[in-house]
Design a protein around this nucleic acid. Structure first.
Lengths: 205, 205
DNA sequence: TGATATTTGCGCAATTATCTG
DNA sequence: ACAGATAATTGCGCAAATATC
């Protein structure tokens, strides 16, 4: 594995350009409960149980059966463990693997339609351009994950606060209910009393 | 470059052994709000702004200033982009990088205390043993992440439910308060009335 | 004690969302 | 309005740290 990714040591890319330091802190778009249903359009390496029916094509074939319920114990079977050797440039880590995988059984690997070992098809792995892109993305990823962490933490805190608030409100309700009971009881007693004491004492009814 | 990580094509590792299919669904250990404070003992590549003060030693030096507030715009500066070339086996992806990095400024790299390029110090990268471990870990990682996703979703749902419940309780409180006000008003009126009507009618004060 | 499982941060690549000219 | 560029998200695998057994 090894990630090439060879140092490019201390090439700091000090430029970086904060790119509109939003940093948000914007409250989560979650709360909609639908946040899980979205985001699964990767196709990336959507072969989970390494068996995975047909569809050797390049369909996006969303939903990599990883979301939702993982079938409660049947999932999490190994599924990678067969990767192309990719001695040249390593075209893509996940995609195409499916093709490769089934080409063993179905197709003779289409010799040249894709995968040109030369510095074509995007960026050469060690170009400065590539490293710049990677570095920027790495920064963005860290930022995004921090944001997600903060969001999760906020949600948890909110849940805790709501729970406490809930408790307080319930106590309040109990207290009010008790007061009401007392007053009502008192009134009913007075009502009886007034009846016992006789009629007109100005008790309007 | 190039993944090495060579396929080990179709070596399915069908064993896998579900290892006590817990799958949990256990409610989160979160809710403790402290979940963020923990987990930062990596030392991994804890140099974020690629500048990062002294401490070139091997201290765990927890807290990679990524948690908490990212300083609102100063963080997320590139910080990797200086990795060891690791032409041999690549001993570790992140750790030791710190050492490398500061060895440039502080220490001559201790020549042999660690990092034996030979097939020592752990497993060779293409051993079956290694692949087995990796595969198991990959499965575990997917499982763990699914669990985390479910947990987050549950927390969000819980927050929503609590909010609704909260609203209901507040309405209830308003209603009870109103009833109490009415009754009290009624009683005070009666009190005045009884005073106007004459003296004691048994109004115990 | 060591082996295994779980959790975590990281970088990569693909996808999606936003800008920008 | 549209295409290219850039940022933001997401799933993945890796390795290290930690938790469990």
């Amino acid at each position: 594995m090894s990630i090439s990714h060879s140092n490019s040591s201390s090439l700091v890319f000090s430029s970086h350009n904060p790119t509109s330091v939003d940093n948000s802190l914007d409250l989560p778009p979650d709360l909609t409960t639908a946040s899980l249903a979205g985001h699964m359009t990767h196709m990336n390496a959507g072969h989970y149980g390494q068996a995975m029916g047909a569809q050797g094509n390049g369909l996006p074939h969303t939903a990599d059966n990883r979301n939702g319920e993982p079938a409660m114990g049947l999932a999490y079977l190994p599924y990678s463990s067969c990767l192309t050797s990719t001695t040249s440039e390593r075209p893509a880590q996940h995609s195409h693997i499916v093709q490769q995988e089934f080409s063993q059984f179905l197709l003779p690997p289409p010799p040249s339609t894709l995968r040109q070992p030369g510095p074509k098809r995007g960026l050469s792995k060690d170009s400065v351009e590539y490293r710049l892109r990677r570095e920027r993305n790495n920064i963005a990823v860290r930022k995004s994950r921090d944001k997600a962490r903060r969001r999760i933490q906020l949600t948890q805190q909110r849940a805790l606060q709501l729970q406490e608030e809930n408790h307080r409100l319930q106590l309040h309700i109990e207290q009010l209910s008790h007061e009401l009971d007392t007053l009502r009881h008192y009134l009913s007693q007075r009502h009886l009393q007034s009846k016992v004491d006789g009629i007109g004492v100005g008790e309007n009814s």
